[in-house]
Structure formats: C-alpha cells, structure tokens
Design a protein around this nucleic acid. Sequence first.
DNA 1: TCTGGGGTCCTAGGACCC
DNA 2: TCTGGGGTCCTAGGACCC
Length: 417
Amino acid sequence: MGKRIIFHIDVNSAYLSWEAVYRLQRGESLDLRTVPSVVGGDEASRHGIVLAKSMSAKALYKIQTGESLFAVRQRAPNLIIAPPRYDLYMQCHKAMLSILEEYSPSIQIFSIDECFIDYTNMEAIWGPPLDAAHAIGKRIEKELGFTVNIGISSNKLLAKMGGDLKKPNMVHTLFPEEVRTKMWPLPVEDLYGVGRATAPKLYQMGIYTIGELANTDPELLKYKLKSYGQLIWDYANGIEESNGVKDSRPPIKGIGNSTTINFDVDNKYDAYKILLSLTEMVCMRLRQAGFCAQLVAVSIKTNEFKHYSHQKKFYTPTDHTTVIYESACRLFDESWKGEPIRHLGIRLSELCGNDFIQLSILEAHNEKKKKLDETIDNLRMKFGSKAAFRSVFLHSGIHPISGGVMEEEYQMMSSLL
DNA sequence: TCTGGGGTCCTAGGACCC
DNA sequence: TCTGGGGTCCTAGGACCC
C-alpha cells in the first residue's frame, strides 16, 4: 500500500465565525471576527462560560475557551458576547460536509467543526494535495462565508497538528520529514494528548517542547506515565498507527446527559425531579438510537465543584424510562453525601440492540411500559417536547426534560452528529 | 449571576473463583 | 498450620478530546 494522504479540516473559531457570518447575512455591518467577541452561555442559568472566541479576543485579552464570562468581562469590558445558536452550527456543519464530500468519498467527522478526509488516490481528479486543499478552503470561504485551516500529512495525528500551525485561513503540510523543523519547536502542551495534568509532569522532567519529549527515553516516560507515556512519545515522533479515515463512525459506547441546575439543590426530592428530567432525555435518545443499556451511572457535582459518581449494572438490559429513573434515584441515595448540588448527570452504557425482546417473568408488564415510552416519544417527536410531561414538574420551576444542548425542540448536537 | 456538556480510554483496588 | 497467585468482573476516579 502506498503512502496515504490525509487532510484535517478545522473551522477557524467555529461558533464565533458562524455567528459572524449569520449576522452579516442578516444585514449587520459589523463582522464579529474583527473585534473582541465571544460566544458564551447564559449566565443567569449558570452556563456562563466562553464557548468560542475571536482571534482578537484571544490576542488582546488572552481569553480562553471554557473561561467564565464573569472573569473575561472584568478584563474586557467592551467584549461582545453572543449567545450560542446550535441549530445554525448544525447547518454550517452539514454545508461544509457536503462540499468536502466532493473531494473524497472517505470522510471522518471528528466534531461539529472538524473532519478528516482521505485524499489518497484523489490526485488524478483534483490535483496535488496542496492545490486541492487550497481549492477546498477557497470554496468554503466563497460559498459559506467562513474560513478553515487545513493540515496535510500521511496520518491523522500529523494532519491535525499541521492544521494548528498557524491560523486562520491557512493550509499547512506536516509530513514526517517536516516534524523536526515544524513540530518539535512547539511547546509540549500543544501536542494532542498533552493536557492540564500531563504538561506539569513533563515540565518536572525538564521537558518543555515537543522535540524534547520526542527525544526522551520512552522507557522513562512509560515508568512515569504508564501507557500514556508511550502514546505521547509516539505522537511527539509523528507516529500514529490507528491510521485510516473511517467513514463509518465507531460504535456508540454510551449515552449520557447532564445539567447544571440554576440553583443549588439541597434536598433529594428536587434531585429526583432533575434526575427524572435527565432520564426522560437520555432514555429517549437511547430508544431513538435503538439500544438498551445494562449499566447506569449517576454523577454529582457539588457547589464546591467536587465531583463523584456511582454506577450499577442491571441484570437485564433495559430502555424503560421508569426502570432507569428508579435505579438512578437509588444510586443517588446511595452516593449523595448531603452537600448542595450544582450539577447532576446520568450516563447509560454497556449498550446492546433493543430489537429483541428480553424474556422475563414480567413480560406483560414490560410490554405496557414499552408502549408507554413509545407513545410519549412519538408525541414529543410530533408535537414538541412540551406535548407530554409528568405532573411533578408542574409549578416546580424545573424543566420536564433536560440535558444536552437544546433549542426549542430536540435539536441535539450530539444526536445529529 | 465566577467556572458547560458530551464523549472515550485507562488505571487501581477489591471481590471472587480456581 | 503455613501460605500463593492468576484471571476476571465490578466500581470509582482521573485524564484527555471537542
């Protein structure tokens, strides 16, 4: 097999660029990309963090994704803050995808704003890789109004690292023979896989650049960082074997929903309501995806940002809302230590197909529950999330369904990706 | 009204079995 | 009485990514 050619395509400041384009199309004269601006969540409901920032917001005020809006407003009083618009992001994602599909039949969606495409053997049609990448970038900018960075290499890791070299609106190659000059001088925390916890450990070993990591004895790294040491040593050396752009997404391992509650929960009955609203969401997604789950986990984040979780396995897989809700409540009771609760989550995993009926003594009972779940799912799909909800939520101040990124209806990013 | 949400993978320790 | 060790499953927690 010959050498592969992989492109990594990454939208520059995705959410912010998409919002900027949207506003320009609606006749506004200001381009958000040209001023200090961010897309941020709703502070009133305690979702106030930076989801995306403009280049000047980063350059002038060192604004980082994930920072609290409260903190960034202190430094940047004139900052423009736009609310997120996930339906728009989904449209932009799909529009970009349809352009990319023209250039290769093999595309791997990495996130809402990142894709890999396999350009191997496509040169006969679209020319040399650099020409094709520039053509793709220009087409996206001309037709969709936003810019992308494209990284080109022979594996996904290097294509991705290459795409990050200089932004925005750039094409870079980062082939193995260029790793030494283009990637090794970068700070070690720029390497994919080196995050908040690993970087300080590397500093302690006197490793500050990707090059220094690449030239460290891998045995020493394995001793200090276990298997992760080997992984990041490989990455630093441009080695990534999992190679290959996968057009079909890997199988789903689990489905979860969680939410930050707009007040601190201090009693289990309010917690139960939140858990029910999360269960409604997560179970509907489970059924839509055609799965039953055998493992349910509840996670708790306290008002002091302490985090813990508790999980339990079912004897038989299930997709029933009430069954999962009841076990979520039990898990909550068994784990909650009584602190004020900021955030609750439910995660279902160990999935199997739901296209067979689990035989059980309670067969008839189960059939009834299944019908009920189905009926409610259909009502909500047809008439919206408010078409059916449980009476406990009346006057409770708690949404009957929660978790995920919700627009008016079930327009969930993750379920569409 | 300072700090989101959805994922995946790995490790460590205890239970339990042979 | 003395004293193992391997393998697997379960659970909690931590790390990383976008």
